[in-house]
Simulated assay, not measured.
Amino acid sequence: MIIATGSVNIDENTKLAEQAGADNEEALKDLKTSMDGKITISTQAPFNDGVDHADGDLWLIQSDNVTTAMYTYGAGGWSEKQWDQETLNVKELSALSANLGTINAGILNSVEIDSSTIKSANLTEDYTSGGVHRQLWIDYNGFHYRNTDSSGGQNDVKMNDYTGMYISRSGGGTDSGYNGHTSIEGNDISTGNVNADGVLSNSVGTTTVNTSHLNMNLSTINSYTGSFYFEGGEGGSGEPGADVHAASFNKMSQLSVKRNIQDVTGDYALAQILGTDVKRYDYRLSDNSQQTNIGPIIDDENKIGSKKYDISSDMINSQSDGVSIDNEVGLLMAAVKELTKRNSDLQLRVTQLESEVKA
């Protein structure tokens, strides 16, 4: 028994049921059409395989069960199917080999890039590790690497077309007094300090060179100040000069490089030699293994008028901190010539006196 508790519009419900059946029938029809499409699997691109193909047929190119391309049949021909990037969701690509042409991307993260050419207007890296801030950038100005430690000290390495390579160190904190730079350009090396077991270069220009071995295959050394100092200890230490060993020393003496040429009389040279004290001495910081020295002394501790030791001003160099060996030898040569002349005159007078006595 059916008991109706409310009014029902039977005609309306019947119409909805008929409409739903029609929709289902159309969907089944479309599905059947798709299911009836033929799928061809081959290792080659679509060719005339002797089969009548209809719209909707698929042609898959596969190799080792891997599909590399898909074609659809329509309008009497095959066309390769293209996939929109929004429909792809790939977690991992184990291998990608393709002629990709131009790739536009925001960020590319990679462990290793193997390429014959990498072109970029600007390459940068900026990170902090172990308390050291490291920065690397390459742009149209060249290459630049910098690291900054926690105390503010910086190491800089630059390389470009104009200055070659420039390496600098600026100290920070307790290391604030440590500053220096090295510039490498062509065959020239210019630096504030060079500390090395060996330096081999065609040209070395520097304020101070500290090294156990300095090997130079060159013919010219240029000094901006015009002076070279060979000292014990670090450069500018003020310690006594170091020993210099060489087979010979040749002083440049061509007339073409000299000016203000004047005579030095024998009497003047002899007076300078006689007015210079010659002493035996050791350097204060030397030990018993070093040779005792003999020569003049520049008294740089007492005022004029109370000097302990006398020395000709012609023997003192322009910095007043050393003896000019050239002037010392020159005065000795002129003095020897004067003494030789005087000795010859005396011998002549003695000979004349002997002749007069015999007569």
Rank of each mutant, 00 (worst) to 15 (best):
A242P: 02
G232Q: 15
G275M: 05
F230I: 09
F230T: 05
A242C: 03
T211Q: 10
G241I: 04
S212N: 15
G238T: 04
T265Q: 12
L255F: 13
L218S: 15
A247H: 05
V244C: 10
G233S: 03
M252H: 10
E234Q: 08
F249Q: 10
G236E: 05
V257G: 09
G226P: 01
Y268S: 08
A242T: 05
A246H: 02
D277R: 12
Y224L: 04
P240Q: 15
G275N: 14
T207V: 05
D277Q: 12
E239N: 11
L274Q: 14
S227G: 00
S219D: 14
T206M: 12
A269T: 05
E231L: 00
N222E: 08
S223M: 10
S253Q: 07
L274I: 13
T207Y: 01
G205E: 11
A271V: 01
R280K: 15
A247L: 11
Q254A: 15
G233A: 01
Y229E: 02
V244L: 15
A271P: 02
F230C: 03
F230V: 05
I261A: 11
A271R: 12
T276K: 02
Y229W: 01
K258R: 15
I221S: 09
H245D: 13
T225A: 05
T208Y: 04
S212Q: 14
G238W: 04
Y229P: 00
V278M: 10
R280A: 09
N250M: 06
A246I: 05
F249I: 11
L255C: 06
I273Y: 07
V278K: 12
L218Q: 06
S212M: 07
L214M: 11
T206C: 09
S219V: 01
V209K: 13
Y229G: 02
Y224S: 04
V257L: 06
D267S: 15
K251V: 12
E234S: 10
T276R: 08
N210E: 10
S248T: 03
F228H: 08
T208E: 04
Q254W: 12
E231V: 07
V264H: 03
H245I: 08
V244E: 01
